[in-house]
Design a protein around this nucleic acid. Structure first.
Lengths: 192, 192
DNA sequence: CGCAACCCATACTCACCCGTATGGTCACCC
DNA sequence: GGGTGACCATACGGGTGAGTATGGGTTGCG
C-alpha cells in the first residue's frame, strides 16, 4: 500500500503540470500558482518544472489555453444540437446549473482579471458565450436589441452567481432551493 | 505652486492610510496593497506606517471596516425614504446604475474573496443588500419565495455586471446603450 | 524654555519565490 | 552494454516585500 497521493513515481509530462496548475487555480486562485508549491504537490522539485516550461508565465499560458480549448466543446457544442430553439435556453440553463464543477476555473479566473495573461482569454470566452446567448434569445422570439440586453443580463447573472456562491459563501443555498432558483430564472428571463 | 500630489508635508494619521489603502484597492486590487508602495505614494517611508499599524493585515482590516461603515448609509438609507414601494425598485436601479464610482471598491473586493479577511465583510454587506432587495420585491407584490429568488437574480446580475465591465473590458458598452440596458433590466426584473 | 509624546527615516533581518547551473539517474535502443 | 536523451535533484544567485530596531526631528504643552 502506498502513501496517499504521493508516491506516483512515474515521470511527468507537460500535460501533467498543466492540469495540476488548473486544479490549483480552481482551488486557490491564479495568485497561488507558484512553481515550487506545485512541484511539492506533484512530489518533485523545480528541476523538473524548468525542463518542461521555460518560465512560470509559460505554464500559465499553457494551462489557460488548455482550459479554453476544452471549454470550446464543453457546453455550446452540445446545446447547438437541440433543434427546437424554444427548448434550447431552458435546457442550457438547467445543464449549466448542474455542472458547477467545470465552472470553478472560470470563477477563479474572474478573480484574476488584473493579470494581463488571463484578460484576453476571458474576453474571448465571454464574448463567444455572449454571442451564443444573443442568437439563442433572438431565435426564441426577441427583437435584436432586446435579445442583446437579455443576453447581457443573463450572463451577468451567471457570473454573479458564481462569485456569490463559490467564493463567497452566503447562506449556502441548498439543493431544492437551488432548483427552485433555476426555475425562477427560467421563468423570469426566458420569453414565453 | 507645489509639485503635484507630493509635497503635503503634513503628518499623517491612521485615517490617511486607510483612505489611501481603499483608493489603491479600488484601482489595483487587494493584492496590490503593499506597505512600501503605499508609503511611497504618500511621500513617506515604512517607518511611518509601522507607527500607525501593527501589521499589513491590520491596515486591511481597518480599511475594510471603514468601507463597510460608509457603505451602510450609502444607498440603502436614501432609498428607504421613498414611500411608494412600487417606485422604489426602479429608482434603486437607476440610482445604482449612475453611481458606478462607489462600486469600484466592491468590484475589487469581489476579486479578493480568497483573502480570508475580506470574506466576512463581503458576506455581511451582500447579506444586507440581499435582504433589502428581498423585502423591496415583497412590497412590490411578489410572494415571499418569488421575492427571494428575484432578489438573488437581481443581485447576481449586479455583481456580474461589475465583473464584466470594470475588470474585464468586453465591447465596452457606451452610454446610450447602457441606459437602454438599465431600462431593459427594470422591465424584465421588476413586476408590473 | 524644555520635556514628552508623537511621527518618521534609515538600516537592517528574514522569508519567499523565480530562474539558472550543473550533475545525476533512469529508459530505451542499436 | 554502452551511449544518448528525457527527466529530475541540489545548490546557488537575485529580487521583493514584510517586519524590527533605533535614532532623529517635530509638535504640543506646562
Amino acid at each position: 500500500m502506498n502513501v496517499s497521493t504521493k508516491p506516483e513515481r512515474t515521470r511527468l509530462s507537460a500535460e501533467n503540470w498543466e492540469v495540476a496548475a488548473l486544479q490549483l487555480i480552481a482551488e486557490q486562485g491564479v495568485g497561488a500558482l507558484a512553481v515550487e508549491a506545485l512541484a511539492r504537490q506533484l512530489g518533485v522539485t523545480k528541476g523538473s518544472f524548468y525542463w518542461h516550461f521555460r518560465t512560470r508565465e509559460a505554464l500559465l499560458n499553457a494551462a489557460l489555453e488548455r482550459w479554453e480549448q476544452y471549454g470550446e466543446r464543453e457546453v455550446i457544442n452540445e446545446i447547438e444540437q437541440i433543434t427546437d430553439p424554444r427548448k434550447r435556453l431552458p435546457e442550457l440553463f438547467r445543464r449549466v446549473a448542474h455542472e458547477l464543477q467545470p465552472h470553478r476555473v472560470y470563477a477563479a479566473l474572474l478573480k484574476a482579471l488584473d493579470h494581463p495573461q488571463v484578460v484576453p482569454v476571458m474576453a474571448r470566452v465571454s464574448q463567444r458565450r455572449m454571442e451564443f446567448l444573443t442568437t439563442a434569445y433572438r431565435e426564441a422570439g426577441l427583437a435584436p436589441p432586446q435579445a442583446l440586453n437579455r443576453a447581457r443580463l443573463t450572463y451577468a447573472a451567471y457570473v454573479g452567481f458564481l462569485q456569490l456562491n463559490f467564493t463567497l459563501g452566503l447562506p449556502r443555498i441548498n439543493h431544492e432551493e437551488f432548483e427552485a432558483y433555476v426555475e425562477h430564472m427560467i421563468a423570469t428571463l426566458i420569453p414565453a
